[in-house]
Simulated scan of single mutants.
Amino acid sequence: MHPGMHPIDDALVRRLIAGQFPQWAGLAVGRLPSGGTVNAMYRLGDDMVVRLPLVKGGANDVSMERTWLPRLAPHLPTPIPEVLGAGQPAEGYPWPWSVYRWLAGENPEAGALSEPGPLAEDLAEFVAAMRSITLLGAPQAHRGGPVASLDAATRTAIEDLRGIPQEGVDCDGAAAVWEEALRAPGWDGPPVWLHADLMPGNLLVDGGRLTSVIDFGCLGVGDPACDLFPAWNLLPADAREVFREALGVDDATWVRGRGRTLSQALIALPYYRRTNPAMAQNARHVIRTVLDEG
């Protein structure tokens, strides 16, 4: 998927565990299928998961999660990852890595939700809880700055997609939605705590209800519109309105949120269309959903 990816396999993970956490050395190790783009995930026994960055950029996320997850967890209504072991570079693997407690559930799939309305309420509860946190010293959330900070990358992606006609993207329509987001009033309140990457692959559900939120590598503070992604990357229209009403989202924040979600999808599609089917499929879903919404 990316240049500079470090090769990771079962044998490497076993060596890392044996060298740094010998109490777990005899447990089964197996790679988990994942649409993630930054980390490899390995099941460790029945109750743990090993998460290793695939690229150098993911190493900072490891340290940030170790710092903030224990502080955020008591404030949230939904379980989040718990770090059980802080792994260090070894065995030729160059970056820090972590062992987490296993969180059960499955990723929700847009268009196949069994309880979209209640799930929308669950997601709104989580987002509202994040926004209410007042912990000091927070980093700037990835993509949490002004909408205009995404402008160059978004316009480049739109032009890239013009050159891929087989994707069938209405690039003029996408550009119009993006222009509307740029014109929307910016957030004039204090920055709020954000997960900042509420993709379906970072949510776990059971029986259609939210059971866990994972992968806090983009966390920090910023524009609350950044955590509206599920409205378009997951929820159908009726549940989208449930989500918006539960959060009390004003028009300007909603327009910025739609633009931010579209921007992420436009950038992801040409980048991942041949390397990550899950990311590309969700990007296509977002683009269709946003443009159909008008």
Rank of each mutant, 00 (worst) to 15 (best):
G26M: 05
A124M: 02
D10P: 11
P53L: 00
E82K: 14
R15P: 07
Q166F: 05
D188V: 12
T78P: 11
A252L: 05
E293P: 07
Y93E: 08
E245M: 11
E82Y: 04
T154L: 08
G45Q: 09
N276L: 07
N233H: 06
A280W: 00
A86E: 12
D47L: 12
A138K: 05
C226T: 15
R43F: 10
M48F: 14
E115A: 07
N107A: 14
H142I: 13
T289E: 12
P79E: 12
G145F: 09
L119M: 04
G87F: 12
A283H: 07
A152R: 12
F126G: 02
R155F: 00
P224L: 00
P139K: 01
Q23H: 13
V83E: 11
V29S: 02
L54H: 10
G105F: 03
H75G: 07
L234F: 09
H142L: 14
E180W: 10
E293R: 12
N107S: 13
V127I: 08
R209D: 01
G173W: 03
A175T: 09
A120K: 10
N282V: 10
A18Y: 03
L266V: 10
R101L: 05
R258Y: 06
L210N: 02
V29N: 04
R273G: 13
V205W: 01
D227C: 01
Q88E: 12
V55N: 02
N39G: 01
A86F: 04
E82H: 14
L12W: 00
A120T: 11
W232T: 01
P7W: 09
R274H: 14
D9E: 10
V169R: 02
M199Y: 13
H285R: 08
S63Q: 15
L113W: 00
P77V: 09
I8K: 01
L198R: 08
D197C: 07
G105S: 03
G144Q: 06
G117T: 07
G58K: 02
M48L: 14
A73I: 05
V286A: 13
V127C: 01
E293F: 12
I8A: 03
L52M: 10
I214N: 08
V221E: 06
W102G: 02
A28S: 15
T78Q: 10
E241R: 14
M41I: 15
V38W: 07
Q88D: 07
D251R: 15
M64W: 08
R71Q: 13
G163P: 05
R155N: 01
P3V: 00
A59W: 12
S212Q: 14
P190A: 12
A175P: 09
D188L: 12
L136V: 15
D122A: 03
M199K: 09
G30M: 10
V147E: 06
V242I: 14
A104I: 08
G45N: 08
G105H: 04
A157P: 01
I158P: 05
P79S: 13
M5Q: 13
D188T: 14
G222N: 06
M64E: 12
L198I: 06
D227M: 03
F21S: 05
G87C: 09
G294F: 11
E109V: 15
G144M: 04
V50G: 05
R162V: 11
F243Y: 09
L203M: 04
A40G: 08
A181M: 03
L52E: 05
L210P: 00
D215C: 04
V169M: 06
D227L: 00
L228I: 03
L27G: 06
E91R: 04
I164E: 10
C218S: 13
A148S: 14
A11S: 11
G30T: 15
P7D: 14
